[in-house]
């Protein structure tokens, strides 16, 4: 464990807590893409298949459980909770995310660490996570002004993978036999997708104006 990875995990956790706060405090999921939340739930379920077979540390196991439970709870809440689901922007959340699923799985069959069930699903989760934010970013562009909590949610979600890139650079220089090309390249793509969001987020923070993504 290094400071970059720990900071990244804490930012990831923060993004989930901010999203939970938004949904439970405002009893609304307006501006949140259900499709992105479904993709994230799949990412965690596909990535943590080794939850009960490979014990790494208490921290690792607890965080995996937190990510799986929180992501499925958010999807459940946006679909089933009578009050919350009324505020879901169904007509705006129209990104065809099944293409992202199919493309990620196809790529995982071709490019993986080892052609085993667990490794294919691990690579699938890595590729899917890189593109999972797309429905959310498209929804933000369509829904015009973005409320603070939603903006903070996306910001922390983007920042966490940027810290993971620092973690991979650090591990590359400090550990022998360290190579995580699949995660690293995918992480670079993932962070790059947030580039324009980060730019408009910084502008809104600097000018102290409402965050607005150009359509």
């Amino acid at each position: 464990m290094n400071i970059f990875r720990f900071a990244g995990d804490m930012m990831h956790l923060t993004s989930i807590l901010v999203l939970l706060l938004k949904i439970y405090a405002t009893k609304s999921c307006s501006g949140i893409s259900l499709k992105t939340q479904e993709l994230y739930a799949l990412v965690f379920l596909a990535r943590y298949l080794d939850l009960f077979t490979d014990f790494i540390s208490v921290y690792n196991t607890i965080m995996k459980l937190v990510f799986i439970v929180s992501s499925t709870a958010i999807v459940w809440c946006m679909k089933r909770d009578r009050v919350v689901r009324r505020s879901y922007d169904k007509q705006l959340d129209t990104f065809r995310h099944y293409f992202l699923l199919a493309a990620s799985f196809a790529l995982a069959l071709l490019v993986n660490e080892k052609f085993t069930f667990q490794e294919i699903f691990w690579a699938f989760s890595i590729y899917l996570e890189a593109v999972a934010i797309l429905p959310q970013l498209v929804l933000l562009q369509r829904s015009g002004n973005v409320d603070n909590l939603t903006g903070q949610y996306v910001f922390f979600l983007g920042a966490y993978r940027a810290f993971y890139i620092l973690n991979w650079i650090y591990r590359y220089f400090t550990e022998t036999h360290f190579s995580r090309w699949i995660a690293c390249i995918s992480g670079l793509v993932q962070t790059a997708l947030y580039a324009d969001f980060f730019y408009y987020y910084y502008i809104s923070w600097k000018n102290n104006t409402k965050l607005k993504l150009p359509a």
């Binding site: 990875r5 995990d9 990831h12 990535r47 080794d50 490979d54 790494i56 690792n60 965080m63 995996k64 990510f67 660490e113 691990w122 993971y164 973690n167 036999h177 995580r180 995660a183």
Partner: peptide, 10 residues
């Protein structure tokens, strides 16, 4: 032969 890599990251 490097040891089989387990995914120790989240």
């Amino acid at each position: 032969e490097p040891e089989p890599k387990i995914h120790d990251e989240l």
